[in-house]
Write a protein that binds this DNA or RNA. Structure first.
Length: 322
DNA sequence: GCTAGACCTGG
DNA sequence: CAGGTCTAG
């Protein structure tokens, strides 16, 4: 795989100097619940309690104990080459400095958002939330890259998680830059928009088992490339929820549900409540939301979102993640 | 506006 | 059928 194969690192004890930690109580973050809940499809439990995945074009392993979140970042396979090329300052060419990795992780998990206080408020407003909150502490919303989030969730329609995960893995392998190998397993970055706009992208995606979503992925990539661009997509972070939603829904393969997922999980729209068939079921059965139709019509979708926003407030999407 | 059906693929 | 979306009536 690589001339000098790297090993996966499970725990800080083996090689403490390669790990760092951030203070982070379990009530604020439960790695296992957050990384396996279907928000992101790029993390796997590489050994019990250790989660390995790609974030910000780097491969990381995360683990938590007590009140700390531990992490280690792996170097790129052609790091030495890079180092030589930068004759100016070889010493710091190899790794991101620790302030930077700390920042990336804090941003990804949105650790500045105090979850305990939010749980208290949701529990006070909603008896049903109170019942599940004790069993699922530390569930927070990730702040993902908008491009990765958008194309990942286009793949979720009428699909199940095991296949979605496999599809995205193949997408990255085929279109993304290879970052490094760990225990002979290659890791790839999520491809940039430009990698998905080629004339043969749709056919290649079909060959990777994307089915009818191949057209959606390549079509949305084109539409964004010719329209607002990656920057414009990212700038939706500062746009109002309604506008971000409207722009996203104009893309092929993006309906209300996918748009809300992208809004909530990558565009800072904490009020977005993605309503899938499961949530719809819960809303009717447990919350007794009165709705006219027997199916999830656009109007019913809107009403359910409004109901939960009324119940939980401006971070309804976060509460729903629990 | 709302109701069907089709749509890739795999468990 | 599966954590939808699109299209035609």
């Amino acid at each position: 795989c690589s001339p000098t194969p790297m090993k996966l690192r499970d725990a800080p004890s083996a090689c403490p100097s390669l790990w760092r930690c951030l203070p982070c109580p379990l009530a604020e973050l439960r790695l296992d619940l957050v990384l396996s809940s279907g928000q992101s499809f790029r993390w796997w439990e590489s050994s019990p309690g250790a989660w390995t995945g790609v974030l910000g074009d780097r491969v990381w392993t995360l683990r938590q104990d007590g009140d700390r979140l531990w992490y280690t970042v792996y170097g790129e396979e052609d790091e030495h080459k890079k180092e030589e090329e930068r004759d100016g300052c070889p010493a710091r060419a190899a790794k991101l400095d620790v302030a930077e990795t700390d920042r990336i992780l804090r941003d990804y998990f949105q650790l500045d958002v105090g979850l305990s206080a939010l749980y208290r408020a949701w529990a006070a407003a909603d008896p049903l939330f109170r019942k599940v909150a004790n069993d699922f502490p530390g569930v927070r919303v990730l702040r993902q890259d908008p491009v990765e989030c958008l194309f990942s969730f286009i793949c979720t329609s009428n699909n199940h998680i095991s296949r979605i995960t496999a599809m995205i893995e193949r997408l990255c392998q085929a279109f993304g830059r290879r970052l490094c190998c760990l225990d002979s397993r290659p890791f790839h970055a999520f491809p940039p928009l430009s990698a998905l706009t080629g004339a043969d992208a749709e056919a290649r995606l079909r060959a990777l088992g994307f089915g009818y979503r191949a057209k959606f992925v390549s079509g949305s990539a084109r539409a964004i490339a010719e329209g607002l661009g990656t920057e414009g997509l990212c700038q939706l972070r500062t746009a109002p929820y309604a506008e971000a939603r409207r722009v996203l829904c104009a893309l092929p393969g993006v309906g209300a549900k996918v748009a809300d997922c992208v809004c909530l999980l990558s565009l800072d729209k904490a009020e977005a409540v993605p309503v899938d068939t499961h949530v719809w079921h819960i809303a009717r059965q447990r919350y007794g939301v009165a709705l006219g139709g027997k199916s999830l019509t656009p109007r019913a979708y809107q009403e359910i979102g409004d109901f939960f926003r009324g119940l939980w407030g401006p971070r309804a999407g976060w509460a729903q993640a629990v």
